[in-house]
Amino acid sequence: MATTFLSRRMLIGVLAALGLLAIVVLLSLGVGSDNTIGFAQVLAVLQGAGDDQSRMTVLDLRVPRTIIGCFVGVALGAAGALLQSAARNPLAEPGLLGVSAGSATAVVISIALGASLDNLQVWIAIVGALLGCSVALGVARMSGLGDDPIRLVLAGAALSSMLAAVSSVILLTDQRTADEVRFWTIGAIAGRNLSSIQPAIPVLLLGLAVALLLARPLAALALGEKVASGLGQRPKLVRTGVMISVALLVGSATAMAGPIGFVGLVVPIAARAIVGPDIRRALIVAVLLGPSFVLLADVLSRIVARPTETPLGVISALIGAPILVLIVRSQRLPAL
């Protein structure tokens, strides 16, 4: 096992992903709305020098959003890889399946009930994600999905639009919430400070740990239910685990940044393209690629409409949707 896992392809994949991440992190620190602060200033600040303006911009603004972007990317990349593998469906993405929408709706409800975005309770987002996830996977019944990947997506789309409507109802009756939420529902990692996302981090790490534990059983499951059972795996348990892990990951990501779609679609597909379909490898690479995608989108969000910022959710949709179309256009859907 160990030898296959650490194949040459895998090593190259991991190194490439790490290299990309390093470049993107640099970009995220050096590029921003204030274009007077570039790499030179960042370097100075990181060495403890630099003027107040640069220090504030780099340390209080760009460093936090880079860190948050990494967390969000890890969570969504891992959740996407897990979900796609468990559902054996390249289109199984937390956003498309309504998991993010469930989480977002729960947050909207909690804000309407008096909570504030500033002290958002992570568990609310997680409960919402769990509900969304259980409906999505309940619909899918997992095993029947190899035949019809679109069905799950259609179910997710219907679920998402229903949840969006529920949010609309709340926003209609509660304008204070509407005003507070209308920026949040698009998804963004700007302006969140590290202390406010702290509660979400342990949850995210727990979700990631569960995901890594599940990689092996999922790989066995990919061989088919019977084979997996023969190998001593318990498919039902594995699926429940996937559900919980995805809910923890997506819930914490949503609590940090609001609903951001398409990360969980694009990243795992890229990961599989690099290291092949084995979930054990794809998961690792997806975890490393996720932050790159999110940060790249975030860097774009800062510069496309200076001096304002375009929300990250819009950029990720602009990148992700064409990729979705490309996947569907390819003559037959790649089966997992």
């Binding site: 921003g32 709305s33 204030d34 602060i37 303006q53 911009t57 603004l61 304008q175 204070r176 005003d179 507070e180 920026f183 700007a190 302006g191 800062r302 409409a305 200076r306 001096p307 304002t308 910022e309």
Partner: peptide, 22 residues
């Protein structure tokens, strides 16, 4: 205006700030 980037804070850094809240 649209929501300005936090990096553009200098543009609104005035002596008095009236912050409208709901």
């Amino acid at each position: 205006t649209d929501v300005l980037s936090l990096e553009q804070l200098a543009t609104v850094d005035t002596d008095w700030l009236f912050v409208a809240t709901f």
